[in-house]
Design a binder for these strands. Structure first.
Lengths: 100, 100
DNA sequence: TCTGTTTTGAATGATTTTGTCAAAAATACA
DNA sequence: TGTATTTTTGACAAAATCATTCAAAACAGA
């Protein structure tokens, strides 16, 4: 279970690229990319999409990774984290069903 | 699948209480409570706890309802909402496992 | 040590959240 | 209807959170 940050750091190190290079492609300061890789900052959607393009990864997969990171962050330190995620899942399913 | 807002509105109407009364107990403006009940605003943890006490409900259950609402809100309009929730669940489980 | 890379944290800006207030809209009911 | 009560709305302000920049510190390797 890898976070988006861990994933892209691996990719970047595989290619032996400095933060600078990827950050330039994303048009952000390398400090931000460093923080994103280490999970200290959240990327935004545009950055995730660019990262997928840069590293030739499936965009949807990376967006799922990113979104799920945000969800995990939202329930950090919560006793009922797991339960809440499960209930949220049911709620989303229910809403989807209602739309048909 | 009921949101926290729907739940407490029902309770309040059952008891035929005006927003004013419950809002006073929570120490907030009734406008906010109105918005919380209709899902336009998020309650905070303290308010959820007070609501549970006020309506004699199980605090944990209400917190789960509240947290899951927040999660649903976070993935609204996302194509990959369900997938992201499932992945988040696995991530949380994985983290929990690692701690043992 | 020198060079390039990464991390850190303070400062600043931008955005979001939270709440208040008062007026408008809706509701209840004599 | 008319009046009182409740609810909703939206403008506004304060507070909190979040993103970004920058420069310095820490780190890695030759």
């Amino acid at each position: 279970m890898e976070s988006l940050g861990e994933t892209i750091r691996k990719r970047r190190e595989d290619k032996e690229l400095p933060l600078r290079t990827v950050a330039a492609y994303l048009d952000i300061d390398q400090a931000i990319l460093s923080k994103i890789e280490r999970g200290q900052r959240n990327a935004n959607r545009e950055q995730v999409i660019k990262l997928a393009r840069f590293f030739n990864m499936n965009e949807t997969d990376l967006l799922v990774s990113w979104l799920s990171d945000k969800l995990v962050y939202e329930v950090r330190n919560e006793d009922v984290a797991l339960k809440a995620l499960q209930v949220a899942e049911e709620k989303v399913k229910y809403q989807k069903m209602k739309k048909l």
